[in-house]
Structure formats: C-alpha cells, structure tokens
C-alpha cells in the first residue's frame, strides 16, 4: 500500500531534503511507525509520548484535517496522500 507523504521544510532534515516520501500502513499510526524505520526521529516530531498527534502539527488525509476524521487512528488506503504541516501559531503570552 503506497501512500504519498508530503513533508514540511522543517522536517526535511529527516528525509534527506525530500519534499515527499512514500510510506505504508492501514492507519496513520502505522504509517508514522513505517516512516520512522527509514526516517529515524520523525515520529517523535508528530506524536507525543501518549501516541497522540501533537497539538501544533496538522496532518491532512487528502484535503481533510485528520482531527475531523479519526485522528491518529484514521484509516488509510492505497493511493491516499498525507500532508504534514506544522501549525502557524504564536501569541503574546
């Protein structure tokens, strides 16, 4: 099952500068574990120590924010495209 994963600039240090990589998995969780085997360190940037998606990382399945789908358990299919984008956020405090 090939899934295209689009990598943001800040995480390309884990992918030798590649903008997109391929991975596999029946769920987002499995996909991130699969990515970790070839891009060590990337998973920790995406999920917290409880295994949930980090609050300020946005992950999209095709055009949909996975928070509105199944979160880390979102099911994936062959040919899906996953996009990772860090939140653009901040503030005075």
């Amino acid at each position: 099952m090939a899934i295209e994963v689009r990598i943001p600039t800040i995480l390309r240090t884990y992918t030798d500068g590649q903008k997109a990589v391929e991975g596999s998995g029946a769920t987002l969780d499995e996909l991130f574990k699969d990515l970790e085997t070839r891009h060590a360190g990337i998973r920790e940037r995406l999920v917290d120590d409880k295994g949930e998606l980090r609050r300020f990382v946005n992950v999209y399945l095709n055009d949909e924010d996975v928070r509105f789908l199944g979160g880390i358990a979102t099911e994936l299919g062959d040919g899906d495209s996953v996009t990772i984008l860090p939140a653009v956020a901040g503030g005075a405090v």
Binding site: P8, N58, D65, T83, A87, V88, A89, G91, A92, V93
Partner: peptide, 23 residues
Amino acid sequence: PMLNAARSPTFYEFDSTDLLKLY
C-alpha cells in the same frame, strides 16, 4: 492576510483548512 482562528488578543493560529490551502 489570514484569519486568526483563535480570535484572541493573546494568541493566533492559522485556521487548519486555510493553512493547507495556503501551502
């Protein structure tokens, strides 16, 4: 210009759908 999804005097965050569209 982006929408501040937090609509707050002390925090800002780009709306996640707008963020994807922007990138």
